[in-house]
Design a protein around this nucleic acid. Structure first.
Lengths: 264, 264
DNA sequence: GCAGTTTAGCGTGTGATATACGCAGTTCGG
DNA sequence: CCGAACTGCGTATATCACACGCTAAACTGC
C-alpha cells in the first residue's frame, strides 16, 4: 500500500491531502451510498466557526450539525487537521468574476479588498496554521486573479508573482489586525474607543516610551483608536489599512513607471 | 467585591487582565512564599511552544516543565486564555535599543525586520487570538520604538500612528506567510521547492487559471517558490517580503516628500 | 510568642475532546 | 444472487481545562 498517492486514480504523484483539497479522493463506488460528503462536512465546519468561533469546531459539534454521529466524519476525513486544511481553502471562497479593464491599480486594489472581505466573513481564518505554500483550489484561484490584474503590464512573471505575494502579505496582516480584531470588538466593545485611550494614559510611562506617550497625550487613541474600526465600517480593516495599501500601491506604481512601458 | 479592578491597589480602573500583563497583580504578601511566579510560568509556556509548537502547550505540560503540579498554575493565572495573553506579549520580547540617527527610513526598515525576527523565534505567535488593541508592555514598547523613528519627520501624531500601524499590518502578514511557514518547511521540506512547481503544473488548469498557469510554465515556482525561503536565510521572510517592504517605504517616503519639510 | 487568618500547592473529580477499533447493515461486481 | 467492500456508528481510551476542597505555611494583631 502506497502512503503517498491515495486511491484517486492515475493522477501524477499528487499527495493524498492535496487530492482531498481538490475533491479527488473518491474511491471505487461500492457499498452503501454515502449520506455525507467532504463538501458537506467542510461547509458545516465553516458554519460552526463563523457562528461560534474556531474553538467551537469539534468533530462532535460538526457531526451534530449534520445530524450524524461523531465517528461518521472519519470515513471522509482522516483527522481534524485535515478538516482544518479543508476549511483553510473553503474560507477563501471563490474570487469574484472581473474582467480586466487594463487598470492594474484599480484591479489590485479591488483584489486586496476582496481578500479582506472574504476573511472578514471568516475571522477565524488567520488563526489556522499555514502548513505550506498555497495549494488549494480557492487559494490558487485568488493568486491567479491577482496575477491576471497585473498581466497587461508585462512584467517578468517572477516579478509579478513577487508583487502579488507582497500584496497578499500586506492583506494577511490586515486580516489579523483588522478582521480578527472585529471579534474582540464584538466580545467587548468597551475595550476600544475612549477607554483604550484612558488606559494607555495610565499605563504608558513618558520616560520609557516618550514617543507613544506624546501620541497618547495628543489624543490619537481617544477616538476610533489604532486599527480598531467599529464593524459598521465597510469590509476594510479601517483607515490605517487603506493608507498602507495606498502607499504600497504607490510604491508598486513607481516601480512599474521606472521600468518604462512594456514591450520591446 | 468589584469585578473589574483587581487587588493591585489604587491604580486607576485598570482591568484585571491588563494588570496581570503589567505584573501588577501581586496581592498582599501573606501565606506561604510562592515558589512560582507569573513570569516563570510565562517563560516555561513560551519555551514549550518554541520547542514543540502551540498545541503542546497544556497546563499539565507547563507545570511539569516547572516541576509543579497542574493545578498550582491556577493560583497565578485564572485560565489558559490568560496564559495565552501573557504569551502574546512575552513573544514580542523587548525591542532592541537604538538611538535615532535621523534616518527614519533605515530606522523603520530595521524596526520591521526586528518585529519579523522576534516572531520568527516564536512562530506560534500568529496563531494566537488577537482579542483587542495592543495593551501589553512589550507590544506597546514596539509601537513606541516605531513612532520614535518617525518623530524627527514631524508628522502630525495621528498620521505617524497610522503609518506605523500600516507597517505593522504588513509585518504581521510577513509573519504569517513567512515565519509561520518556516514551521511547515521544517515539518516537510519536500513540499517546497521543485516538487511544489511540479504539483502546480499538475493541478492548475490553464483554462480556469490562465495567468497562474503561465507563471507556472515559466518556472517561477520551481526554485525557492512563493514566499518559501529556506530557513537558512536571514531573519526576513524572503525576497517577496523585502520587495513589498521596499515598495511600502517608497510610498511612505513619497507621502513625506509631498508634505514638504517639517516646521513652519 | 500565640492565635487567627490568609494563601500556596496539590489530589481528586467532571465533562469535553480526538480518535482507535470492531460490528452491523447496505450495495454492487461478478 | 452471493460475497466483498464500504458506510455509519457504539464503545473505549487518553488527554485536556478546570471546579472544589484539603493541608500546611507564613504573616498580623494581640
Amino acid at each position: 500500500m502506497r502512503t503517498d498517492e491515495g486511491t484517486a486514480g492515475p493522477d501524477d504523484g499528487i499527495p493524498d491531502d492535496v487530492a482531498l483539497l481538490w475533491g479527488r479522493r473518491g474511491g471505487p463506488r461500492r457499498g452503501p451510498r454515502p449520506s455525507l460528503s467532504v463538501a458537506d462536512i467542510t461547509r458545516a465546519a465553516v458554519a460552526v466557526a463563523d457562528a461560534d468561533g474556531l474553538d467551537a469546531v469539534s468533530m462532535a459539534r460538526v457531526a451534530a450539525e449534520l445530524g450524524n454521529s461523531t465517528m461518521a466524519l472519519y470515513r471522509h476525513v482522516r483527522s481534524k487537521d485535515e478538516l482544518l486544511a479543508l476549511m483553510t481553502d473553503a474560507a477563501m471562497e471563490s474570487p469574484p468574476e472581473r474582467e480586466p479593464d487594463g487598470d492594474w491599480r484599480a484591479g489590485l486594489y479591488a483584489w486586496a479588498h476582496g481578500v479582506v472581505a472574504v476573511s472578514r466573513r471568516h475571522p477565524w481564518f488567520a488563526r489556522l496554521p499555514v502548513g505550506g505554500p498555497p495549494i488549494g483550489p480557492h487559494n490558487l484561484a485568488w493568486l491567479d486573479r491577482g496575477l491576471a490584474e497585473l498581466e497587461p503590464v508585462g512584467l517578468p512573471p517572477d516579478e509579478a508573482v513577487a508583487i502579488v505575494t507582497g500584496l497578499l502579505i500586506y492583506t494577511q496582516g490586515g486580516i489579523r489586525l483588522g478582521a480578527e480584531l472585529a471579534v474582540g470588538y464584538a466580545a467587548d466593545p468597551d475595550a476600544f474607543g475612549a477607554r483604550y485611550g484612558r488606559l494607555l494614559g495610565a499605563l504608558v510611562d513618558p520616560h520609557r516610551m516618550p514617543a507613544l506617550a506624546r501620541a497618547v497625550a495628543a489624543g490619537v487613541f481617544d477616538g476610533t483608536g489604532t486599527a480598531s474600526p467599529p464593524p459598521e465600517h465597510d469590509a476594510t480593516a479601517g483607515a490605517e489599512f487603506e493608507l498602507g495599501l495606498t502607499f504600497l500601491l504607490d510604491g508598486i506604481a513607481a516601480h512599474i513607471a521606472r521600468r518604462g512601458t512594456p514591450g520591446p
